[in-house]
Amino acid sequence: MSKVLVVTSGKGGVGKTTTTAAMGAALAQAGEKVVVVDFDVGLRNLDLVMGAERRVVFDLINVVHGVAKLPQALIRDKRLENLCLLPASQTKDKDALTEDGVGRVIHELRKTFDWVICDSPAGIERGAMLAMRYADEAIIVTNPEVSSVRDSDRIIGMLDSKTVRAENGERVEKHILITRYDAGRAARGEMLSIEDVLEILATPLLGIVPESQDVLRASNVGCPVTLNSPASAPARAYHDAMRRLLGEDVEMQIPSERKGLMNLLLGRRAA
């Protein structure tokens, strides 16, 4: 059974594209057939984060408009053969996407892939609406910070009302993924706690990804963090999240602050 998963957030810069690439690669490594689809028309970046930016010929809009066939537009990942990318257009504007057109493309992708992961643009405009429109499941990427949590709440409301599943009286299965979590700042009470975020959003938690240089390094070289540095804390967090998405019961690890030398010498407690 294929699943359509939207990675969304409302707010920009929280880590949707990083999450799409990392989860897509992790699922593909687990043997699933995965396609990641960029819905950010006009401002595509998933190709860059996946390291496929030099190989883009056709895009989602070309397929929607029938200019290219789906197999011609799909870019196969060079590292994982069961991972594909369908890029967004960089030149057209977002009105070029139609609901029926997107529906046809998703329907066709479902025949080939186990997972169709839709990377939503920020905002609540047309692109974001269409990215979530046909979703079975949703990952809401949230930073432990007031504006991100507020926007996530708004997006949750849209997932419960504007999707095909919602209109048919079904539910989109929703998961919160907390990213850019800084254990030190959380311990000092400078950042919303995980309990606060979950209580406010009343949605189950899929994982907690710590703020890390490994994420920046991975996007610099164009490789999903789960492939680029698999032993790093964010890669392990994404890997655990992937297993939970597949229905496994994986114990939740709350990232803890690494004790600095000064803290150790002064005998301070970190968390």
Partner: peptide, 17 residues
């Protein structure tokens, strides 16, 4: 460092765009 890789990738991409 990964930043030089990032710079080169961006230079090529943006020149084309």
């Amino acid at each position: 460092a990964s930043a030089p890789v990032a710079r080169e990738r961006l230079q090529i991409l943006l020149a084309h765009e």
